[in-house]
Each structure stands twice: as C-alpha cells, then as structure tokens.
Design a protein around this nucleic acid. Sequence first.
DNA 1: AACAACGTCAACCGCGACGAC
DNA 2: CGTCGTCGCGGTTGACGTTGT
Length: 358
Amino acid sequence: MVRAPCCDEESSLKKGPWTTEEDAKLMDYISRNGHGSWRALPKLAGLNRCGKSCRLRWTNYLRPDIKRGKFSEEEERVIINLHSVLGNKWSKIATHLPGRTDNEIKNYWNTQLRKKLLHMGIDPNTHRPRTDLNQLLDLSKLLSVASVGNSNMMTSPWDNSLKLKAAAGAAQLTKMQLLQHLYMMPVVRTSNSRVPPNNYNVDLMNHYSSLFGSHILNPFGGGHVNRASTMLSGQEWNLQADIVDGFHAISNSLEGFEGGFGAQGVISSNSPDQENMSSSCCYDDIYVQTKNHPLPALVSSSSVYPGTSSSAANQMEISMGGPAAPARTAIFDAWEKLMDDETSESYWKDILEYVLAD
DNA sequence: AACAACGTCAACCGCGACGAC
DNA sequence: CGTCGTCGCGGTTGACGTTGT
C-alpha cells in the first residue's frame, strides 16, 4: 500500500521554525498531560502543527533533560567508539550520551567528527585508513619522479645503471607511500602546535590501533601509538606513531646523498623537561626528496613529548646523526619484508650501501 | 560595504518497525 | 495472517550566521 504522508491531508498546518509561543504551548501541555498520542496532541494543545513536528520539537529541543553546549572529549570518544561498532545508529548512540539527542549527535558527527577523522586519514565510514583518490593522486606525482626518461635530476655522480636503480627505488618509495596510506594514519602537519597529549587522544589512537592491529600500524616493529595529541578547538591533529621512527631512520640514512635522495630533519628542542609536558622536541618537515623534484612527504611532522616515550629518545638519536649501523640494518630488514617485489631488495641494498659507504 | 562561499543545525521527509485489531 | 495507524529513525534540506574576498 502507499500511505499518505503524515501531514498531507492537513496541508494548512504550519511548518518551519517554531515560535516561542508555540514552544510555550507545547511545553505547557506536555508538562501537565504528558505527550500521550502525538497525533492527537496538536489539537489538544492548541497548536497548528502536525504531531510529528511536535514530537520532533519536544525530543530535540524542549525536553528538560537536554544538555546544551559543546561536546566534551569524553563524549566525542564515546561517539567515535560507538560509531565504529554501530555505524549510523544515532538513536542507539544517543542512549549512551545522556542529554544528547540523536539529531544533535548526527549533526555533530557530520559537521565535526567526520572532518577530524578525515584529517587523520581515517575513513569515517569504515574507521579504517583512507585509500581514496586524493591520496592516490599524490602517488601519481611520486611515480612521475620515477620516470627516468624526462628526468634531469640525475647528475653526477650518478651513472646510468644507478639512474635505473634510483628509478626503481622511487617506485619502491611509491610502494612505501601506498603502504603508509593503506596501513597507517598519516601524521598531520602541526609544526606550530605543541599541545600536550591527553588521555582522550591516546585512547582514541589506541582504539584505532586495536582495530587495525599494531603490526599494521607499525610495520617496523614496536607497539602501539606512543603519543597522540590534538588541538580540538583548532581541529588540528597531531599524531605520533612508532612507524615515524622507521621513516626517520631511513630518510636519515639517505641524507647527504648528493644529487639523489636527500632527507632533511629539523629538530627544535625546547629544553625537554620531564616534569613539564608543554616542553617538547619537535620534528618539522621530515621528508624525502630528490634534488630537483621534491617528493610528497612520507612523513610530515610530529611533535614528540619527552619523558615516557622511548621513540622520542630514538628520534633524538636519529636527529643527532642517525642510529648505529646495526640499527639501520634492522630497519632495512624490516622494510625489505614489506616489499614482495623481488627487484626491490637488490636495488635498495645497492642504493643504501652506496650511501652508507660514502 | 557588498557579495559569495562555507558551516551549522533545526526541521522536514520518507520509510521501516511494530502493535492493535 | 493481513491491514491499518502510529511512532521513531536516518537522510536530507534550507535558513541563518560566519568568514573570506
């Protein structure tokens, strides 16, 4: 059967924003009688509205137990957690957030939380790392660098065979970038914000870590995310994952490779202080590039908070001249495992050996 | 100052679930 | 068991405010 829309037969009924008079009538009636039958209510309350409109106005706005104002970090965390399990079941999610309506949560998700997750590189629908077109477009740039024919980046001391190897290397970098996109949350640039981490953000990151598995988050070995911090009001995310150490180490080991891949790490240390969480040492713009053709960043930046994080110490070590050779070998081995292409092994070994022997 | 673009959120719409008969 | 009426949910819209040009 085809049912007539709720208010069709009563098209003279008012629609649109509610006036204070209407609100007062509705509140007065419900406080004295309860809502009873929503369909019957408007007539009984003296309102020229359909019952559906009255119910919506009451449940989303007039109900006395409605909480107003900004969502707390805890509420955000609950919403994200529940959404990852329940999906768009706003009413179910709302039952876990006293005073919040499903409509309010839905709006907050669509206007705020979705964006936050997208900035983190998380697909808000699946709660998994994004693999969308925009990110793949970055890869196309990277691939173009790998094209040897029209490249003017290879100058002395590169010979032809090394050019080929570098091209293959760029292709592997592309792979690496793809893996990064597939397997981890990108580290978002926040070079000027050094916000102390808090439990909410660490919880959030570990939530995703548990969804993806720490081995996926960190193919270089190690554990969960060490630190995650954010400026909620600024909608700026700043994540720190162990995987960053691996990229730092690799890019650092390539540093100074004249005419080829270079890496640049800038460290700013604000006199690390174990007692003061606002102190930080911070990498800005860790990236891998060719001399004339900058590559998209493998890692943008991250803030590292001194103290409990062992990776902070590792990064310090890297910044001061890189890890010892055995550490580089270990990192290389880990990387090699990621590459199932039989060509990558020898090419990268050649390049790295060339660099390390220099 | 005027206009456009963008963001937010209250309200609407259509559909499915469910209970009464 | 089928039909009907009501309710509630989730997607979408559009008015309004804010920000950028």
